[in-house]
């Protein structure tokens, strides 16, 4: 049994503590928004906030999240509300396939939490560990800057 907080709610999970946090989120906890991309922490599709820090859930074992607070894309904003980054992504239509977006929005939310008025260079730097293959990069940068307004 591992205890942790997910999107503000304390939970107890029975998955093997050696299992990747990503599998626990998508499996036992049924939160599909965090995506598997590479399993090696190299693409950002599985980014979550772990005690507020952007973390790859695919190569973080559940045991490393014990007693800590995890925030996924589903929990960026309370309840059914949308985080400003989520609203801005829709406003800018900053998506094509959308598979990378969860991790992008987690990175962006962490940036805005630390720096509500980032420069374009700050946004680019904050997203540099997130890969996108459809080529929506510039729209996402615009969306994050819009969310900061």
């Amino acid at each position: 049994m591992t205890r942790l907080t997910v999107n503000g709610t304390p939970v107890e999970v029975t998955t093997d503590p050696r299992a990747p946090l990503l599998d626990v989120l998508r499996g036992e906890l049924g939160l599909a928004g965090t995506r598997f991309g590479c399993g090696e922490g190299m693409c950002g599709a599985c980014f979550v906030l772990l005690d507020g820090r952007v973390t790859a859930a695919c190569d973080t074992p559940l045991s490393a999240a014990a007693g800590r607070a995890v925030v996924t894309v589903e929990g960026l904003a309370p309840g059914d509300e949308a985080h400003p980054v989520q609203r801005a992504i829709l406003a800018e239509q900053a998506g094509q396939c959308g598979y990378c977006l969860s991790g992008m929005m987690v990175s962006a939310a962490a940036l805005l939490a630390a720096d509500p008025r980032p420069s374009e260079e700050d946004v680019v730097a904050a997203l540099d560990r997130n890969l996108c293959r459809c080529g929506v990069h510039r729209r996402i940068v615009r969306a994050v800057l819009r969310a900061a307004e």
Binding site: A32, V73, G98
Partner: peptide, 17 residues
């Protein structure tokens, strides 16, 4: 606006994955 994007932005299950 894209019809499929709201689900993807909200992190709802949408993909075959």
């Amino acid at each position: 606006p894209r019809l499929d994007l709201p689900d993807k932005v909200a992190g709802r299950p949408r993909f075959v994955h």
